[in-house]
């Protein structure tokens, strides 16, 4: 396996009117191709900033970020992203929301008009895999929060990105819906095998989904622990009650408590 995301000793400062904020300092992180990585850490430690760095939305002060062999200089053009807020466009039907990336990313962008029917079919099929069969022609406001988040996931995946960036995508959902969506994401990942970086506050979520869990220190953030999760695959929700799983969660919890103290 080759590295798909390689962050080498990166610093990041936000310049503001009342002085700069040092968000990341000496952050180093490696994610293999097809790996599911999770990032956890105390609030405000720079997890979202890390996502913006990897996708090239903000430039690093120092250090280097390499994605699939290419140094990141500007927005990366291939990453799918989803956030805590589904951010759907209320004037578009669900299926047209999912199709949005194809109107932007090459080579779909050029083919979009002529192959619209085909693309719509793809979008419907993807919606069906997340349990939204038949909801394509509805508007986002007709959907519940959990359903909107599924649409947001579909939008992040429709162009089959090599890299999926998720920033607390399930944080606003109730516990049952959240676990349901863990399984949706797990199945999509098992099938398509993209590289994922998932930012989360939920340690069980990280342990359930990820191959490796990276723990960040308080601001300025850097990776203080990278914990491989050697649980069997495929995982089902029952795994959350097994001693090995609970042990991993405990260990992460202790580490985060420790970095919050520091």
């Amino acid at each position: 396996m080759t590295a798909s995301v390689d962050i080498g000793n990166v610093d990041l400062t936000y310049k503001g009117v009342s002085g700069g904020v040092l968000a990341l300092k000496g952050t180093t992180l490696n994610v293999e191709r097809g790996e599911f990585a999770a990032v956890v850490g105390p609030s405000g430690c720079g997890k979202s900033s890390l996502m913006k760095l990897v996708t090239g939305l903000v430039p690093a002060d120092t250090g280097e970020i390499v994605i699939f062999g290419d140094k990141v200089r500007g927005p990366v053009k291939i990453a799918g992203m989803a956030f805590q807020n589904p951010n759907l466009l209320p004037w578009r039907k669900v299926v047209d929301n999912v199709l949005l990336p194809l109107e932007i990313v090459q080579p779909h962008r050029q083919r979009f008009r002529s192959h619209k029917a085909e693309y719509r079919e793809q979008a419907r099929a993807l919606l069906a895999t997340v349990g939204l069969d038949g909801f394509g022609e509805r508007y986002p406001w007709e959907l519940s929060g959990g359903m909107q988040q599924r649409v947001s996931l579909c939008r992040a995946l429709i162009h089959q990105p090599a890299l999926l960036m998720l920033d607390e995508p399930f944080a606003a959902l109730d516990a049952f819906t959240r676990e349901e969506l863990w399984c949706v994401l797990r199945d999509l990942w098992q099938k398509l095998r993209f590289t994922v970086i998932l930012v989360t506050h939920d340690l069980r979520e990280a342990a359930f989904l990820a191959d490796t869990i990276h723990v960040m220190s308080a601001r300025p953030g850097r990776i203080v622990m990278s914990k491989p999760v050697d649980l069997r695959r495929p995982r089902d929700l029952d795994i959350c009650f097994e001693p090995q799983f609970i042990e991993i969660v405990h260990e992460l919890r202790a580490k985060i408590a420790e970095v919050r103290q520091a």
């Binding site: 939305l57 989803a82 466009l89 004037w91 949005l100 990336p101 932007i104």
Partner: peptide, 29 residues
């Protein structure tokens, strides 16, 4: 415009004009 939505589009390689046409102008209505 929601900055996260802009991020989603920029991470796909959208230019400013794309973002305006797809999101900015419709949401201004």
């Amino acid at each position: 415009m929601e900055p996260e939505l802009e991020d989603v589009l920029r991470a796909l390689g959208a230019r400013k004009l794309d973002i305006m046409l797809k999101v900015g102008i419709p949401r201004t209505q």
